[in-house]
Structures are given as C-alpha cells and as structure tokens.
C-alpha cells in the first residue's frame, strides 16, 4: 500500500487520500482559447516513470498535495502542498 507523508498530518495510508490527476497540467485562464482548454482537460502525458501528480488528503486535513511518484515502481520521492502560499505560511510558523 502506498503511504503518503502529508506535510500537515504525517505519514498516512493511501486510503486516506484521493488521487487527483496529473500535477504537471497548467490550467489556462478561464477566458483562454478552446485549444488550450482542450489540451489541459483532455490530453495527458501519461508518464511511464516519475511524475508529479495531485492527491487530496480527503480523510485528513483535505489539503491538495503535489506528489512525485514513480508510476512503475510506485516509489514516492516527494510530497508538498499544492498551495504554494500555504507552504510559506507553514515554514514561517515553524
């Protein structure tokens, strides 16, 4: 079973989390053109190997996370909050 180290809650079982999707996607502005929305919503790099992906700690602090994980071995290399500003806040309070 995967175990994900949530920056807030510590190392927890994958069953506490929900997989989001590809973390490398940059969603375009709400008024961007149809093509860029098409590419962001429908196309996937579908990486074989290390990828950044989003997870939500849905049965915990409900943070969205950026997880770097190998899609072949399932090894997890890093976990950070998707919300960059929050991370700064956390560090400031340390």
């Amino acid at each position: 079973m995967l175990q994900i180290k949530c920056p807030f809650c510590g190392k927890r079982d994958q069953t506490e989390f929900s997989y989001g999707g590809d973390g490398q996607i940059t969603y375009p502005a709400l008024n961007a053109d149809e093509d860029s929305w098409h590419d962001a919503v429908f196309l996937r790099q579908n990486i074989y190997g290390r990828q950044i992906e989003t997870w939500q700690h849905s049965h915990g602090c409900r943070s969205w996370l950026l997880v770097e994980r190998d899609t072949v071995t399932h090894e997890i290399f890093s976990v950070e909050l998707a919300h960059g500003d929050w991370q700064k806040q956390v560090e400031k309070n340390k």
Binding site: G20, T54, W64, L81, A82, H83, D85, W86
Partner: peptide, 14 residues
C-alpha cells in the same frame, strides 16, 4: 466540495 478545494488550492491559490 472536492472540486472547490482543488480549484482553490491547486489552480487559484491567489
């Protein structure tokens, strides 16, 4: 709820 959280934390963190 999940979608709104995703929008706020991943896409629109400003």
């Amino acid at each position: 709820m999940t979608k709104l959280e995703e929008l706020l934390q991943v896409r629109w963190s400003n």
